[in-house]
Amino acid sequence: MTKKSKAANSGIDALLGFEFQRNCALYLLLDDYAHISSQEFFLCIEHHDDFLFCYRSDCRSNIEAIHSYQAKKLSGSTWTIDARFAEIIAKMLGVGNDLKNDSAPKCKSYTHKLTFISNTDIKLSFSPKKEEKKNGKEEITHLLNEQNCMSPYNEIPEEIKNKIHEKVRDHCLEASIIYHETELCNLQIQWIDFPRNKNSQKDTLVGLMCRKLPHVSDPSAAVELLLSLFRDVEAVYNQGKIISLLDRTKRIEGNEIKKAINVIETEQKTFKLWRAHSAELSRKFQVPVGIQSSHESRIKDTFELLKDMSNNEHQIIKNFIKQNNYSMSYSGYDDMFHAYVTSIKDKSSINLKDIDIFFAALCAFVEYYGETLK
């Protein structure tokens, strides 16, 4: 079942307000990257909820589980069980019902979680009335902060659960919307150790990238690349205001994320190889000083050309390098790449300058044989 929503096309209009949600999604991804990346998964951005982590069966045909997030920051000091909190929870329960009814194929064992997440302390309290106090009821406070960062709804004290239930029920009655009470069992509330300032959030993401993926040599570039993938998806309008998990334009595939990180690694290895051997390579291929000083841009542009399947000449170079590893035949990179350029020109009709063929061969070589480079 697909769902029409008045807010379905919040993409472009909500970009300014979505920075926290976007950064929060990347934080969660990086924090548990080893586990998440070991599964078949995709992310949805501003689609049903702020963001979704969707996990598929190994055959990729059915969805096994969805972790849906409503990520909110608060200008005040603490979240409490007030009208705003009730409105958010009511919306999340509706999302749970929509996910269950979404027409995307699911496994028989399909489950979903609905997580309210914030970087502000969450104080869930119950204060007994006079009569209740006489009967021995005491005030109860359930805090979510750095000491207790996650609480499934079913593990929250009963009196507080009842208060949440009543507040959400009253909101739904007042707003004339359906109260999807059965979805409460899928609800969980989470505090996240994440700064309020956007620049500090970026610094935290870069630090997390360093810790979780230490092999990525330029964590700042990797974070920015992943955030750009998120921005591209969140800006897409839901077609006809229809929200469906089958809409691939609102997805970031797990393989895209892995590929993005691999691209960063490959580019960095190429920069490093060039810098280490720039003197002899520049002499061999008569690389102008202007290109030497802007080698990073030249290498990035070349990788883009190699990715373009319609660019026949660069595809010829890429395929030749893939099929021919000259690294065991030459003792110097200058002689090896000269041999590549000569062989490619001899075997193919290519209308590129030697310097262009060289840079294409350099990038393709690192892409296919870069795992041996330090």
Rank of each mutant, 00 (worst) to 15 (best):
K347S: 15
S217F: 05
L205N: 03
S217R: 09
D218Y: 03
A104R: 03
P288E: 03
H112C: 08
L28Q: 07
C44Q: 01
I252N: 01
V168N: 03
F42D: 00
S327R: 13
N154I: 15
L16S: 15
F230N: 03
L144M: 08
A8M: 11
K318V: 00
K106E: 02
N262T: 07
D346V: 08
I242A: 15
N324L: 06
E367C: 10
Q188E: 02
I164A: 05
D247H: 08
S127T: 14
C149A: 15
H171E: 04
S38K: 11
A65N: 14
C59E: 13
S127R: 06
F320I: 02
L227S: 03
D58K: 11
Q286S: 12
I257E: 00
P214E: 09
E253Y: 10
L352Y: 01
V236H: 05
K4G: 05
H338L: 13
I36F: 04
S244N: 13
C59G: 11
T372G: 11
K134L: 12
L43F: 13
V233S: 08
Q292R: 15
V287Y: 02
T204H: 14
M328T: 07
G94T: 00
V366A: 07
I140H: 04
K259A: 14
S118L: 02
C24T: 10
N255A: 15
H314E: 13
I317H: 00
L305A: 13
I344V: 15
M1Q: 08
D335Y: 10
L352N: 04
H35F: 15
V223T: 04
S103F: 11
N101S: 13
Q188G: 02
D334L: 12
F41E: 00
Q239I: 14
H171S: 07
E265P: 01
K73S: 15
I178W: 05
I117H: 01
V289Y: 14
S331C: 11
L373W: 05
K134T: 10
P219H: 01
E174N: 10
I350Y: 00
Q190A: 08
G370H: 04
L173S: 12
M1P: 07
R169M: 11
E159L: 06
A222C: 15
K212I: 04
V287W: 06
N238H: 05
